[in-house]
Computed example of a mutant assay.
Amino acid sequence: MNYEREVRVPGGRVDFVVGTVAIEVKIKGSSESLSRQLQRYVEAGRFTAIIVATTRPAHHVVADPDRTPPITVVTLGGLGL
């Protein structure tokens, strides 16, 4: 599977991009900050889906599977991140 790392978009960098899917990895930061960051990714118009992989259950408030592109949040636990 091909992927890109640290992909520049207006207002930031996406950690990983696989095809048209953005993957953002978060181990700290507020939900508000993450929400603003994801909004910039949405506005870039490049992605068909955004996945947030996080160690913080509080980040689930940014999940929005009904928007375009959908935002999915996955909590990673016990991985020593």
Rank of each mutant, 00 (worst) to 15 (best):
L34G: 04
G80E: 09
I71K: 01
A53W: 10
P10T: 09
Y3I: 10
V62P: 02
F47Y: 04
S30P: 07
K28Q: 14
Q37C: 02
T54M: 03
L81Q: 08
P70V: 10
A44W: 06
R8V: 12
G78A: 11
I27R: 14
P10W: 04
E24L: 03
S31Y: 02
V7A: 11
Y3T: 12
V61Y: 05
P65G: 01
G80I: 06
V61C: 10
T72S: 10
V25E: 05
Y41S: 01
Y3R: 15
P69W: 01
T54R: 09
R5D: 05
T68Y: 00
E32N: 14
S30E: 05
A22W: 00
R13A: 08
V18Y: 08
K26D: 07
R13G: 06
L76G: 10
D66H: 14
R13N: 09
G78T: 12
Q37V: 00
V14H: 09
E43M: 03
T68L: 06
H60F: 06
P69M: 03
V74E: 11
R46P: 00
V25W: 06
V18N: 06
E4Y: 05
T72C: 10
D15R: 07
Q37F: 02
E43W: 00
A44H: 02
E4V: 03
A53I: 13
L34N: 00
V7R: 05
V17N: 04
V52S: 00
L81P: 05
T48A: 04
L34D: 06
G11T: 01
G77T: 15
S30T: 13
R46H: 03
V52N: 01
E32G: 15
I23L: 14
E24F: 04
I51L: 09
V17E: 05
A44N: 06
V18T: 15
I23S: 03
G80V: 05
D64R: 11
R56Y: 06
V73G: 00
E43I: 00
V61A: 15
F16P: 03
L81N: 14
S33N: 15
D64L: 12
G12R: 13
E4W: 07
R8T: 14
H59R: 10
